[in-house]
Design a protein around this nucleic acid. Sequence first.
DNA 1: CCCGTTGACAGGCACGTTTCTGCATGGTGG
DNA 2: CCACCATGCAGAAACGTGCCTGTCAACGGG
Lengths: 365, 365
Amino acid sequence: MSRAETSRRGNRQSRAGIRDVAAAAGVSITTVSDALNGKGRLPDATRRHVREVADRLGYRPSAAARTLRTGKSGLIGLTVTTYGDEPFTFTEFAYFAEMARAATSAALARGYALVILPATSRRSPVDVWSNVALDGTVVVDPSDHDPVVSELVRQGLPVVSDGRPAGSLPVTAWVDNDHEAAVLEILEHLAAAGARRIGLLTGTTTDTYTHLSTTAYLRWCERVGQDPVYESYPAHDPCAGAVAADRLLARPDRPDAVYGLFDPNGTDLLAAARRYGLRVPDDLLLVCCSESTVYATTEPPITTLSLKPRRIGTAVVQLLIDAIEGLDAGRPVEQVIPTELIVRTSSERRPPRTTVSPPRSPGHS
Amino acid sequence: MSRAETSRRGNRQSRAGIRDVAAAAGVSITTVSDALNGKGRLPDATRRHVREVADRLGYRPSAAARTLRTGKSGLIGLTVTTYGDEPFTFTEFAYFAEMARAATSAALARGYALVILPATSRRSPVDVWSNVALDGTVVVDPSDHDPVVSELVRQGLPVVSDGRPAGSLPVTAWVDNDHEAAVLEILEHLAAAGARRIGLLTGTTTDTYTHLSTTAYLRWCERVGQDPVYESYPAHDPCAGAVAADRLLARPDRPDAVYGLFDPNGTDLLAAARRYGLRVPDDLLLVCCSESTVYATTEPPITTLSLKPRRIGTAVVQLLIDAIEGLDAGRPVEQVIPTELIVRTSSERRPPRTTVSPPRSPGHS
DNA sequence: CCCGTTGACAGGCACGTTTCTGCATGGTGG
DNA sequence: CCACCATGCAGAAACGTGCCTGTCAACGGG
């Protein structure tokens, strides 16, 4: 009786290990490993035989042992900034959902799985971060001096961020939109549609998206000589958005066009406009940044800016896996995904608001 | 020079292991392990000393080694039925997002992390499922004879499903709403609001949610003696929903109230009603099943049924972790979460039709 | 006939923990 | 003073792989 058999006799009903397969197939452990992993130099007959025996025993290699031995776990962390206790922000919901969905697909297609992790390290009883072996991490919208990111790169783990890292966060790579360009495109689109005074509905948080978009708006205002008209609110509170939209339209210097930076701002602004008896787009042009499809069927349909979260999620994961597998030599470490302005009725060009000329080009001849 | 030092000399710059901590602290490996894990019987002085040295060296225990030794990984799989290539269905988006969010929170609070996995096993090059060590799995809406679930329970892994398992799927536990009761509540709510002929917008898929809801509707129709008026469409296609909503309102036996089973049906039906010049709620009462907050600010606001995905996600994870940790002795293995009907203008009671002879059921007296 | 070469496999170490067992030491009751 | 026990710690065996190193037979050329 061999030692393996003896020790096996102790814990019955355990999952079949590579030893059992080797014993059942009458070969050594090495041969089983090589046969199943397609390595070594074995005749096809042996390979088939081993594979068959392994299948018959229902053999599943132990992921933990494989990870311990190879140093690769096939796991990618996905972490998002946390407001309160929830691991996702509320308002940018659709964006994160789509982005996470695309990231998951891309990872699975390359044989990796995504692990959702909190942005806050050092949680109660044990730290979840150190309890999972990661090959790399995707960080969504990292904050300024994120301790988690610093710790990860200190450990030598590849880190790719969605959103350019604030400060000098030493990430491996990042993917982002050109938010300034997007804001300028929208402002010019609204101006071309006849807007004279464009307002902004923005957030009080300090993330780069909010910051870049707001400063781009302010610079544009300065350039074209318009007084900035904007209201800020904590973006994580959905009720505050409705209130801020109301405030914006209640101002004495009420804008005749508004761009809302966050997903629910479209319905918020629409509801506020209705309360003040403003017709969209006749009295108020509306654009908001959203991935939601509901804006295609609102009354009226609202023009939205899509940040292309699917493309971003895919790109982030590809970059990360390339870095993990060492395929990123010479690749650019930053990638800019173009945004897409989906023009709908809410921002459609209207005739000049003078009373001299009739509302709609009367009698085109 | 000890063997440990010698072997350490080989691979430089590697992460500090428990050996290095032991050497630096002048104690044995056992002492380090016990000190950091709060086990054994050590004086507080030693414990503090070891902890301090470990911190100074930046020691992080290897998750792989720990998993290999203890058999627990702290990882929970989350798998959802896949339509096409995407790991989430499109229409029940908000539901899944919320449910996943709550599940993630609940798992993290108990020291576990969630791994997103595809419902389809045996993917290209290697199987992702066997590449990750799971302590248990959450299955969302498992299909009839899901091979993945069978395989998992065969391996002895706890499996908890969101949605009662179809057929005789041997899950450890499940959580679900009472879909029949929910449908009945809505139908009676609509009837009480004056509906004479209630239509249903449903799906062609065979999942239990669709199935239970539809049969509950049909049984109700039979009981109250109304002819069923419903349209089905493949729920994963968002465009098909708009088309089906249109079909439903274009029928000669057009309903005067509609319940839509899927999230986007509210806007779909609203848009269709608008096309046919039907006023909501005056000509058409509307309810749909959705977790989206946009229905609070549509024109008019739409009554929605919430399945309480947050509560479901939390319950599923709690049940699973209880099973993993062996705390589920005697606990019920099935848990029903009540739904919540959020009544808004679209289904608010309206006065009886004003004309002498109402258009429906002419002069019932 | 011998030796280098190649194919086909076996032995055994290492990965980094956890934990069981065991060995000292010092205090205490008999 | 001895037996005894609690305390504080060390040694070493697993956990299940992957892979490096070796062994043995067959084979062909000189």
